[in-house]
């Protein structure tokens, strides 16, 4: 199985972090535009799912699957979104994304005194820890 890429967005639609592990198809638009498109899509999907929900109006959005890839999303109460693309064979990765949030993002980004909220993450330690964690997973391939 393959993990393609990970995006971290804050609640103001700015992409704080992007990391890519596998070759990704060019979609013909600039990376900035692509991230805006992705954020917009996730944002509308979230409102769509809560409007259509037969159960509760607070239904959370977990992700979607297509025949080629699967998108997983984890949203924190403060609105930070972790979006991970994997291939379609992956199972439920909510726990993994939660681990990335609590054990890697909070530890190496939020607790970093030099990090200002809402700015791009350029901590090498964070990238290293994230890579180690993703590579330790059985589905990771180069």
């Amino acid at each position: 199985m393959v993990a393609y890429n990970l995006y971290i967005f804050d609640r103001n639609c700015s992409c704080l972090f992007y990391r890519q592990w596998a070759k990704v198809k060019e979609c013909g638009i600039s990376p900035e535009e692509e991230r805006k498109l992705l954020y917009g899509m996730v944002y509308s999907l979230k409102s769509l799912l809560s409007r259509l929900s037969p159960v509760s109006t607070r239904d959370g959005f977990i992700g979607y699957s297509t025949d080629k890839y699967k998108l997983h999303i984890y949203e924190t109460p403060t609105g930070t979104k972790f979006i991970l693309n994997t291939d379609h064979k992956a199972g439920d990765l909510q726990e993994m994304l939660q681990h990335i949030y609590t054990k890697i993002y909070v530890e190496y980004v939020i607790k970093n005194p030099h990090y200002k909220l809402g700015t791009t993450i350029d901590s090498q330690l964070f990238v290293k820890e994230l890579d180690n964690y993703i590579q330790s997973k059985p589905f990771f391939t180069k």
Binding site: Y4, N5, A22, V24, K25, C27, E34, L37, L38, M41, L45, L49, S53, P54, V55, S56, D59, G60, F61, I62, G63, Y64, S65, T66, D67, K68, Y69, N85, D87
Partner: peptide, 19 residues
């Protein structure tokens, strides 16, 4: 459009927590 792979056919299943 956003698919990382060539030739994706689009969403098959949208997952929310309860449905």
């Amino acid at each position: 459009r956003l698919s990382p792979e060539e030739g994706s056919k689009g969403i098959q299943c949208l997952e929310a927590q309860h449905y």
